[in-house]
Computed example of a mutant assay.
Amino acid sequence: MARGEGLDSADRRLLAALAADGRAKLSALAQTTGMCVSTVQNRVRKLEEAGVIAGYRALVDPAAVGRPISAFVEIYAEPDDEDGVPEILEGIEEVTACWSVAGEATHLVKISVADAQALDHVLSRIRAAVRTRTRITMVLRTHFERSAAATTPDQ
């Protein structure tokens, strides 16, 4: 199956269950989805092999590890520099995600830091490394985040 193509409603239920609890046992997934354990096991394996399930990881609360402040940074790189931005930013530990975007900005970056001084320091490092202007939006409160699997409609 191509990534995302050929997913039926059972696959989508399974993906939603795994997005909610990536450590769920096969028996719990079977009960949640209404499939037998062997079917769940086969479907999970096929979804992993097809790249639909890209991996499993722990969701770590940034505040619990001393980084309670999150911000989104729009980067406005020069056309000659655009392609190198992700590689440069990957070396900055506080950068937790980087996307190429459409619109005036060329990239959108999420960062997590300890305090305003750390935010200023990271922004200075980004500006120096990419030689660009930035625009910052600081997160005041996260109301929710969800996995794509939880929002994928049945087809």
Score class of each variant (00 low, 15 high):
106 T>I: 05
24 A>N: 10
19 A>R: 03
11 D>I: 07
102 A>Y: 14
79 P>V: 06
92 I>A: 01
101 V>C: 13
82 E>M: 04
17 A>H: 09
147 S>G: 06
30 A>G: 14
75 I>G: 02
97 A>F: 11
102 A>Q: 14
149 A>P: 07
130 V>Q: 08
48 E>Q: 15
64 A>F: 01
54 A>V: 14
22 G>T: 03
144 F>M: 08
27 S>R: 15
138 M>I: 14
152 T>M: 15
28 A>V: 12
119 L>I: 03
27 S>T: 14
97 A>M: 08
89 L>T: 00
106 T>D: 04
6 G>D: 09
10 A>T: 14
11 D>H: 13
102 A>E: 09
3 R>A: 10
137 T>V: 12
49 E>M: 13
123 L>C: 10
7 L>P: 03
62 P>N: 07
46 K>D: 10
122 V>S: 03
104 E>C: 04
119 L>K: 09
123 L>F: 01
39 T>C: 09
9 S>T: 10
54 A>Y: 03
120 D>T: 12
41 Q>A: 14
95 V>N: 05
104 E>V: 10
17 A>W: 00
111 I>A: 05
6 G>T: 09
144 F>L: 08
75 I>H: 02
43 R>D: 06
8 D>S: 06
125 R>H: 05
116 A>I: 13
104 E>D: 09
42 N>C: 12
109 V>Y: 02
86 P>D: 04
105 A>V: 05
74 E>M: 12
89 L>N: 03
140 L>G: 12
32 T>I: 04
103 G>V: 07
5 E>H: 15
132 T>S: 13
26 L>V: 15
3 R>P: 04
56 Y>G: 08
39 T>H: 11
14 L>C: 03
71 A>M: 01
132 T>H: 05
97 A>R: 11
6 G>C: 08
63 A>K: 13
55 G>K: 10
9 S>L: 08
100 S>Q: 09
25 K>E: 12
152 T>E: 02
95 V>Y: 02
130 V>I: 10
88 I>A: 12
55 G>I: 05
127 R>G: 08
101 V>E: 00
86 P>H: 11
66 G>V: 03
123 L>K: 10
146 R>K: 11
90 E>Y: 09
109 V>A: 02
65 V>E: 14
64 A>W: 02
146 R>D: 07
7 L>Y: 03
71 A>G: 01
147 S>T: 02
